[in-house]
Nucleic acid binder design. Sequence first.
RNA 1: GCUCAUAUAGCUCAGCGGUAGAGCACUUGCUUGGUAAGUAAGAGGUCACCGGUUCAAGUCCGGUUAUGAGCUCCA
Length: 646
Amino acid sequence: MKLTLPDKSFRELPEGSSGYDLAREIGPGLAKSAVAICINGTQQDLHDVIDGDASVSIITIDSDDGIEIMRHTLTAQVLARAIKNLYPDSKLAIGPTIEDGFYYDVESREVISSDDLTRIEDEMRRIIKTKSSITKKLVSKSEALKIFKLKKEPYKEIIINESDQTDDFQLYYQDDEKFVDLCRGPHLPNLSFVGAFKLTKVSGAYWKGDSNNSMLTRIYGTAFKNDKDLQNYLDNLEEALKRDHRKLGKEMDLFHFQDEAPGMVFWHPNGWTIYRNLRNFIRNKIQFNGYIEVNTPQVIDRKLWEASGHWDKYRENMFITEIDEKHANEKRVNALKPMNCPGHVQIYNQGIKSYKDLPLKYAEFGLCHRYEPSGTMHGLMRVRAFTQDDGHIFCTDDQIESETKLFIDLLSDIYSDLGFKDFDIKLSTRPEMRVGSDETWDKAEEALEAAIKKLGYPYRIDKGDGAFYGPKLDFVLTDAIGREWQCGTFQLDFNLAERLDAQYIGEDGKKHYPVMIHRAVLGSFERFIGILIENYAGKLPFWLAPQQVVIASIISDVDDYSIEILEELKKEGIRAETDLRNEKISYKVREHSSKKVPIILAIGKNEKSNKTVSMRKIGSTDNNVLDLKDAIKIIKKENINFKNAN
RNA sequence: GCUCAUAUAGCUCAGCGGUAGAGCACUUGCUUGGUAAGUAAGAGGUCACCGGUUCAAGUCCGGUUAUGAGCUCCA
């Protein structure tokens, strides 16, 4: 048979040859590092017989695919076996690879906690030491069922039963045949290819990811070619931990949380400075883009939420309030607003609107409360009270496309100013829980897709992920360490205006319902500030930094000059402070550097007598001695973004 | 909401049945020192909350609350 290699060259091999035979034919080095073969684009075991002419490539242990196969073998053959050895009553569910690692889900009567991981790792090492070869058997559906029934593995039975495959179920065995796992394969030919690994954590996970199903124990691990790669990976994890906004928030004294208000931020002066700067920045951007800022009540009668549809479709997420005092004769039930939209419609509804008023864009930095499930809160990233950079565009069908473009332009501009160059767009369609007729949804989805298509932005579709009132575009940005964050949103709504009776008089003199577009660029200030902190590892752009300059004296003789510099900077609107404490300059530099103050001006005898400063910027150990006037010019220039925003 | 873990000084953590500890931070003294920790002393805790076991409970057990890692959610 004729085999085509990746470099387009050919090899002629006798019928019945395997990937291993091919590798050996090409060279002993390749045969030694080969772990699997890719035949016509499908990965298969190295010892599978190649079925006639094909284009093939050998997968070596050094390649990304090879590492992935190694991780797969490690979880399905080694981890699973170790668990069965240590917890014979446990039931195996599934064990896939994930980015940078793998996990195995098992049902176990005994609690497996992170303290047990070392024990499981030891058992895994013992298994690996046997260097067993791994062999495959193909069996029929009924035989596969029989085997796993005997082994008392109910989850495997379910997997087999639910498969539409009738034959060729792949069973993988090690040398002594005591352990068997059902698997899609391919696997390493033997365990000597296993490199460096580590079990990382234990947690619960629902069977098939459905919260109605039973909770299994999930054991996570990671594996690499060698110890060096593994260590490198673990170091990177530690690096990510260092920029955790919860840790930096404490170090930089930005905010805190406490038991009495879970999921709600106590902003400290430093954190609130960042918040205010970001809000001013957005406020100016949107004013420039035709939005009018409004403000609506926090607590609103349930009647309005019933009319808007929130009471029916969103109540699980709402904080409901009642007045509890005996003397109160109001017995109404209120809800804290989870969204600003119904409030904005109330403003729209004051007075009669004409088509000439459209598009009408209301913006609100509205504080919304949502009752998020207890287990989902996470620092600033997922909270129960947050402020959106919210806005609602009331427009006609014809204006949807131009409004979509205007919004995406605004969003790119803002993201780019904040240091995020790239974002992806997701189009989310009708969810199961929704208001409005299917015809309305057809119309809305078509209009939104037509707009984004016409504008030529690449997008992907996320089926069923729309808001309950309409389809949406979500904007996902990538941060400095490659993580993705869904921030901006643009939601088309053909329902709410009608439900809340918002109308306009058209050119035809008749009443029409406007389209409502719910939109936000940052999403929530809380979350976005969390993202900014992590993206910049706390070293925020100068215009956002809570404290921009510290003037640190070296000896007390220069206190007066330091104060003079402070006054100069304050005149320029710079957030500066002096540090005149009786401490060494290195102590002061260390302290303000760890608080991520962008600029430290060290002031000693020389600076005072020459009217200069010694400037040190965060992230650098250079010290530039500059004339005070020049230094102030440079600092003003650093602030330019902020000035532009005003 | 679910699984597991955690909760001790302002912060980071040790202590795991017998009257509460360290480092840093804080206060005071000495020190005026040139770019990531000068030095000595002092002060600081209802060991998250409620209950139980015990002669005796940060310490063991149960519950509550919060937090963490995941899962499920995420407008």
